[in-house]
């Protein structure tokens, strides 16, 4: 059994290009899914039954369907629905955003609900409107409180970006697949891919642990 690890070194550029796409997907998804999650949480707290029902249905749907299926669905449904054909990258981004928004929606809903009622009352007593009380008093506290959970969600998201490789988005997993196909060095390339994910993910996991340690339940 001979292993040719030089193959990995020779193709490192392609793999690193994949890493760039992975990072882009994760960052872009979170950038959409954090406001998305807050929006969903606010919708679920709404007094208008239709609004909260839609938000609940959305959240439950995307939390109870495998992400890989959502990705395939997005791939086939989006061109039909919108008439345009979005690139695989955008399609993957949309699927990831829908999925993570649903999780963040639940996270924010729980976080907002955990802020003592007295805080809102103190805000109302000063004459603030419900929106002002939410924006100035409740939401800032809720965000701080859910930061550890958001960090965990980020870690999961980073791994889940690998799934969009099934619709040929050029992130790390897909890049590794192509290098594998070209070089036939299956073990070396796959191990390298796993190692790269490890190098990226392990420090992030440790950082999340530190965040949890520092900011787990301040009040």
């Amino acid at each position: 059994m001979t292993f040719d690890w030089l193959v990995v070194w020779n193709n490192i550029g392609a793999l690193l290009d994949g890493v760039k796409v992975t990072i882009f997907l994760a960052v872009a998804t979170m950038a959409i899914a954090v406001p998305g999650g807050i929006l969903l949480a606010v919708m679920r707290m709404s007094g208008i039954r239709v609004v909260s029902a839609i938000a609940t249905a959305f959240t439950e749907l995307f939390r109870n369907v495998p992400l890989i299926l959502v990705i395939y669905m997005a791939y086939y449904v989006l061109p039909v629905m919108s008439g345009l054909s979005a690139s695989p990258l955008v399609t993957g981004l949309i699927a990831l955003s829908l999925n993570v928004s649903a999780y963040n929606g639940e996270t924010f809903r729980a976080g907002i609900a955990s802020i003592r009622k007295g805080q809102s009352e103190a805000a109302y007593a000063l004459g603030m409107s419900p929106w002002q009380a939410f924006r100035i008093v409740v939401l800032p506290q809720a965000i701080k409180r859910v930061l550890p959970v958001l960090a965990s969600t980020w870690i999961s998201l980073f791994k889940d970006t690998s799934l969009v490789s099934v619709i040929s988005v050029g992130e790390l997993s897909y890049a590794a697949t192509r290098v594998r196909a070209q070089t036939f060095r299956v073990l070396e390339v796959l191990t390298a891919m796993a190692a790269i994910y490890w190098v990226l993910g392990y420090p992030q996991a440790k950082l999340v642990d530190w965040i949890n340690h520092r900011w787990g339940r301040a009040e």
């Binding site: 007295g118 103190a122 805000a123 506290q141 701080k144």
Partner: peptide, 12 residues
């Protein structure tokens, strides 16, 4: 003006 038993200052 209202003053609450639990103060309810804004902790942030």
């Amino acid at each position: 003006g209202m003053v609450f038993q639990n103060f309810e200052l804004f902790p942030h």
